[in-house]
């Protein structure tokens, strides 16, 4: 099987939400000696990126994206151990992401993460219910470019402001762009708490980080 067919197969498997097919093509890629990083990047991630486009066009919604993510992960699990580690040549924009303390809803954050990874960004995922200080510590330690904070709940929104306050207090606010996402938020809230920007949904978030790092 040619490299092109395998890469296309990986992309299609993700786009068509076919976990088994993604695994089959990933195994094929390993057997054929295709560079694992390239198989992820030009195969699986390309498919996820296309899924993001369909989300953008309101063709796909959350259920479809979740199944695309399953297919993506099935392929990544097989390919990851075969990645030849020399990624240092290409420094990717690094994004620290997490759901703020007080909230455990992480579907939105996970989808943003997937689309950003597919878009070529390096993601440090802090998980959910993350204390404000942890965002700051991780961003400093990882020398991140962007801090992305999510919440679905109005009750935890205020903790987002604490992240910005801590960055200011520690004198490192200028080092990072801070972006927000989640149901109850708005650009006006981002402005109010001194964050850089806000995104209304996962594909918006990808466009936003592309713009911020252009």
């Amino acid at each position: 099987m040619s490299k092109e067919i395998i890469l296309q197969g990986l992309a299609d498997a993700v786009l068509e939400m076919e976990e088994d097919s993604a695994a089959d093509y990933a195994n094929q890629a390993v057997e054929e000696g295709i560079d694992a990083y390239e198989a992820i990047d030009k195969g699986l991630a390309a498919g996820m990126s296309k899924a993001g486009d369909l989300f953008d066009e309101e063709e796909y919604f959350i259920p479809e994206l979740l199944l695309c993510a399953d297919a993506l992960n099935a392929g990544v699990d097989i390919l990851k151990p075969h990645i030849k580690v020399d990624l240092s040549a290409e420094k990717k924009t690094k994004i620290v992401i997490g759901v703020i303390e007080g909230d455990t809803h992480d579907i939105g954050k996970n989808l943003v993460k997937l689309l950003m990874e597919a878009g070529g960004f390096e993601i440090i995922d802090l998980g959910r219910d993350v204390p404000p200080q942890n965002f700051v510590d991780a961003a400093v330690e990882e020398e991140a470019d962007i801090i992305a904070i999510s919440t679905l709940m109005t009750t935890s929104m205020l903790n987002m402001a604490k992240v910005v306050d801590l960055l200011v207090a520690q004198g490192v606010r200028d080092r990072f762009k801070v972006i927000l996402g989640g149901g109850p938020l708005s650009q006006s809230y981002a402005d109010k708490i001194g964050a850089d920007s806000y995104a209304a949904n996962a594909s918006d978030a990808l466009r936003l980080v592309q713009r911020l790092t252009a």
């Binding site: 066009e57 708005s186 650009q187 006006s188 809230y189 209304a200 949904n201």
Partner: peptide
């Protein structure tokens, strides 16, 4: 000012 209207994706 804070009623941010939804837009098509």
């Amino acid at each position: 000012p804070y009623q941010q209207k939804v837009t098509e994706r």
